[in-house]
Amino acid sequence: MLPELGLVRSDDLDGVLAAVDYDHAPYAGGTELVPAMGLGLRRPAAVVDLKRVEALRGIDVDAGAATVTIGAAVTHRRLSDHPAVREHLPTLAAAASRVGNARVRSTGTVGGNLCFAEPRSDLGCVLVALGATAEVRSARVTRTLSIDELIVGAFETSLEPDEILTTIAVPFEPPGMSYWKLQSYERPTLGVALVVSESRWEVTVGAATERPTRAVLAAGDTAGLAAFVDGLELSDDMTGPPEYKRSVLRSHLGRNLGATA
């Protein structure tokens, strides 16, 4: 059961940044925070509503820099339906369209997904594969991090208690990109993002790993690919033992890279 909670609301970013700290948890869709509070894993005195902050809700295309900048409080649904995202980041749009369920997609946000750092997630894997960067702000400082620097472990980010993720800058999708996931349960069991060109194989594995894990290999480097796959520490949980997940991963890579990983 949820405890009684305070609610802090502000229309502007500075108001939000002034309020957020360990006891005042940033809140947008609540699809991760509310269950965590229900289980007693997170007990803030108040939640700070990010949904009304315009600066966190934008989806902006910079054609010159070939990037799309996505506000942290953009919902999965808006992300997946947005024409610019569909045009420049079709794999991300498709992944967002299959996150969780309709209820989660309608309220859950990109920022919440990344900041909760649930390993069994799609967006982190796709954004690592795309080389996205995150802007993080507090009342004190503004930092720019790679997604890899933001997500440092299972349910663990490098955010300070007074910091929030504000935007994610995503380079336009390169040719040869795909994302595939095995999702037998509520959350993905295994996610694989590939960027394949004539010269390079970029492989990012998520969901079964503590955090998205990326390898950049020369095209055709089957030995390197095999070493990467063999070296992955894969989770052992209800969705299957590591050897199962490794087998599914090998089979997917085999089909898509024409290689026996």
Binding site: L182, S184, T239, G240, P241, Y244, S247
Partner: peptide
């Protein structure tokens, strides 16, 4: 017969 069991 979950996916990992069928795989086995």
């Amino acid at each position: 017969l979950t996916p990992p069991r069928v795989w086995s």
